[in-house]
Nucleic acid binder design. Structure first.
Length: 562
RNA sequence: GUUUCCGUAGUUAAAUGGAUAUAACAGCCCCCUCCUAAGGGGCCGUUGUGGGUUCGAUUCCCGCCGGGAACACCA
């Protein structure tokens, strides 16, 4: 039930539209004031009355019924109290009916949304710098699907460029088959780091790398075979992480995929007289838009990533006919996206407005920035392992009889890593520290999972009690606070999608867990008198369903016991 | 230098322009004869600064201070 719309519909204000009223309706800071409130200040001018008088006037005219039980006017606010039993019935029946679909919607029906995320580089191990894009993208993918969209997950592989020449050069000089087979991607990474170290003293190595890259482009069999092998190794390594994080892709079309799709873009740019020569390079001048030029072709005639990204955008529009195409990429690349979005717009692609750069903050280490080239990175696999180990140690201590400790520890440990990356507004920079990552207290996924385990425990103990359709009675304060919050879940999911902010859902989950724990401590569930007990069990189950749905959207598992 | 993002408690953060700015962490103090103590309760604030718009500003606009990022052939 949409209470805001219901209330707005019944407010007899002349000269102000229902929509405007519905939009103005807010939730008071303290629930003792009311459950909803209409600030009357902005209507003062139109109605030529003081806000207090408007509120007082509307209070007298508002028809109190079984939905809104009380109306009051305080300091220019018109406050509404919702009938508690009605709301409780509404929420509990709806969650009981919808179950794991609670919070979903069909607003995206028939619409496709492309999401470009994770986009790993071949031959580089998965480190914390890749975590944000991966889990943000993964969460948005699930959220949009949940809202009825057809989400297309795209891993735009970084599988093209001179770094592969560098890698082949390093491998030929210092590596061998055995070393890489045993050491996997980390061995490759060490070769890459060594190349940059040695190239500082011997710049001629850079020329060698360029030569190797040229050979790849020309289709040299040996070089191509090496390159394909490196690609295979990388995907194998990265898929382990994706499996842990429950991340999926519908396409792995990366940079090399677009090699033969750039010429038409260049031709079109020429045809539309957008391409100009400058300092030997072919550019699109964006000075009129306050941006530096977008370079399309280098002075040696080769393409750049803007060219590839444009080819990719055009390909995606043709292939998927998206309603939106999101790029989950760090804010460092703000200018790049602004540039090539603008160029596509200048080319007359009306859908350029549907391209969205979902920018997020940077990750750094306590001792400074990360650098793959310098080898100063923290591997994601190491972090996950440490979190899972710690979770397991705690489980062994607290719950020694639990059978599937490894499974539970995995859910808890992985959840902590994912949640840490999703809890704050995505634009915030993150300084990674093991202390923080390994903190399982307070506003964390572990807290939410623990709350779920409590709920499970109560429900399991209630076996034999028939509570599913138990009658609803007047909820107490703690129950009512929890019920109101549960009712808010569908709106929260929608807001998360609209703002591309999975953190809304993460914070919501913590909020629900806090309210449930207050209820759990203050109100006995199983010891409550008959009648009250059944309703509390329904509320417990509804809370569990909602929390599970929230955590699932974020990609976090929910153990029954911990 | 230009553009852009950020600045809230000791720390990390929350807050569609709304009422008394919310949590968590760290610290100190309580609570397991009672549904999982990975929990609950209690103690701590000049929203960087100066203006402006507004009935009302953490939020919008301008200046300043401090920090991050980007700014021509890397992605």
């Amino acid at each position: 039930m949409d209470y805001k719309a219901y209330i707005a519909e019944r407010i007899p204000a002349e000269g102000v539209s229902k929509e405007e009223i519905a939009e103005s309706i807010a939730i008071p800071p303290d629930s003792s004031m009311g459950d909803f409130a209409l600030p009357c200040f902005k209507f003062a001018k139109v109605l030529r009355k003081s806000p207090a008088m408007i509120a007082e006037d509307l209070k007298g005219k508002y028809p109190v019924d079984g939905v809104v039980s009380e109306v009051s006017a305080v300091n220019g606010y018109l406050n509404f109290k919702i009938d508690k039993v009605g709301l409780a019935r509404d929420v509990l029946e709806r969650i009981g009916r919808e179950g794991e679909k609670y919070g979903s919607a069909e607003i995206g029906k028939g619409k496709t949304i492309c999401l470009d995320y994770s986009s790993v580089n071949i031959a580089k191990p998965f480190h914390i710098g890749h975590l944000s894009t991966t889990v943000l993208g993964g969460a948005l993918y699930r959220i949009f699907n949940f809202l009825g969209y057809k989400a297309v997950g795209i891993n735009h592989l970084g599988d093209y460029g001179t770094q592969f020449g560098k890698l082949i050069s390093a491998y030929t000089r210092w590596g061998n088959r055995d070393l890489v087979e045993k050491g996997g991607i980390r061995a490759l990474n060490e070769l890459y780091v060594r190349f940059h170290r040695e190239a500082e003293e011997r710049p001629e190595l850079e020329d060698e790398a360029r030569a190797y890259f040229k050979k790849i482009e020309e289709g040299d069999k040996e070089c191509l075979a090496l390159f394909e092998w490196f690609k295979e190794l990388t995907l194998k390594d990265v898929n382990k992480i994706y499996e842990l994080l429950d991340i999926h892709f519908d396409s792995y079309a990366g940079e090399s995929f677009y090699q033969d799709k750039m010429q038409p873009v260049i031709d079109e740019l020429k045809e539309k007289h957008l391409l100009v020569e400058s300092r030997g390079a072919q550019i699109v001048d964006l000075e009129a838009y306050g941006m530096s030029p977008c370079i399309i072709l280098k002075s040696d005639g080769s393409s750049l990533y803007a060219t590839r990204d444009m080819a990719a955008a055009i390909y995606r529009k043709q292939t998927y006919d998206f309603d939106k195409c999101l790029y989950v990429v760090a804010y460092q690349q703000n200018l790049h996206f602004k540039q090539f979005f603008k160029v596509l717009e200048l080319m007359g692609k009306e859908w350029a407005k549907d391209l969205v750069h979902v920018a997020y903050g940077m990750v750094s280490l306590e001792d400074g920035a990360m650098s793959t080239r310098k080898g100063n990175v923290v591997f994601l696999e190491d972090i996950i392992n440490k979190c899972v180990e710690k979770a397991l140690a705690i489980l062994v201590e607290k719950n020694p009889d639990l059978e599937n400790k490894e499974d539970v520890a995995k859910k808890v440990g992985v959840g902590a890593v994912v949640f840490g990356a999703l809890y704050n507004n995505k634009i915030k920079d993150i300084v990674f520290s093991y202390d923080k990552a390994l903190n399982f207290d307070g506003e964390t996924s572990v807290y939410v999972q623990y709350t779920c385990a409590r709920a499970y425990s109560v429900l399991n103990r209630a076996e034999g009690v028939n509570y599913k359709n138990a009658p609803i009675s007047e909820p107490c304060a703690q129950e009512f606070e929890l019920l109101k919050l549960l009712a808010d879940f569908p709106d929260t999911v929608r807001a998360a999608a609209e703002k591309y902010e999975p953190s809304y859902i993460a914070r919501y989950a913590v909020d629900v867990a806090q309210k449930f724990n207050k209820f759990y401590i203050d109100c006995k569930i199983l010891q409550a008198e008959s009648g009250v007990k059944e309703m509390r069990l329904r509320l417990t189950e509804a809370t569990l369903v909602t929390l599970k749905n929230a955590l699932t959207l974020l990609g976090i598992g929910v153990p029954e016991k911990m």
